[in-house]
């Protein structure tokens, strides 16, 4: 569907811009619990950087950087991080997603362990949202035979 469109300016600008967009997405995820932003917004920005790669180059470039198996793996990996952290707290004797119990595993006090738990949740949400955004885009853009 999206074939290669040779334009030096668009390709060079996008190639220079995409790493900065991805670093900004990671920044939004990492500072999600103390400033505006969070897992969902950072994941959307990360996914948009891959969509920009597909729009500025072509579908094969995106397939090369992010194969379909990797997208499916990321889709489930983020949910697994989220649910895994929740059940880890359950195993340690607290409630589901009760991050305060994580201080039994890591050498931090209870308040810091709550911060770490929220960060882990944000990372899981970000990974899943990124993969789902790319997967929705590929479902819309790719020819039907490839889906």
């Amino acid at each position: 569907m999206i074939s290669r469109f040779y334009d030096v300016i668009i390709q060079t600008v996008c190639r220079l811009l995409i790493p900065f967009i991805q670093v900004f997405g990671l920044y939004v995820i990492a500072h999600g619990h103390s400033s505006p932003g969070g897992g969902f917004q950072g994941g959307v920005i990360l996914g948009a950087s891959f969509i920009l790669l597909c729009l500025s180059h072509d579908l094969q470039e995106l397939r090369k950087r992010m194969p379909l198996k990797m997208i499916l793996l990321f889709c489930s990996l983020g949910v697994m991080i989220y649910a895994g952290l929740g059940f880890l707290c359950l195993l340690l004797g607290g409630d589901y997603l009760d991050y305060g119990k994580l201080h039994l595993l890591f050498p931090v006090n209870e308040i810091q362990s709550r911060s770490i738990g929220i960060f882990g949740i944000e990372v899981g949400v970000g990974i899943t949202v990124m993969a789902v955004m790319v997967s929705i885009f590929l479902n819309l853009a790719a020819p039907e035979a490839e889906n």
Binding site: M1, I2, V28, P36, G37, F40, Q41, V44, I45, G47, A48, I51, L55, M133, I136, F137, L140, A141
Partner: peptide, 20 residues
């Protein structure tokens, strides 16, 4: 922030790809 990234960024691309 959510509106800028989802509404103005990604969903516009989805609409345009669907229009293609």
């Amino acid at each position: 922030f959510t509106e800028a990234s989802v509404g103005a960024g990604v969903s516009t691309v989805f609409f345009i790809v669907a229009i293609l």
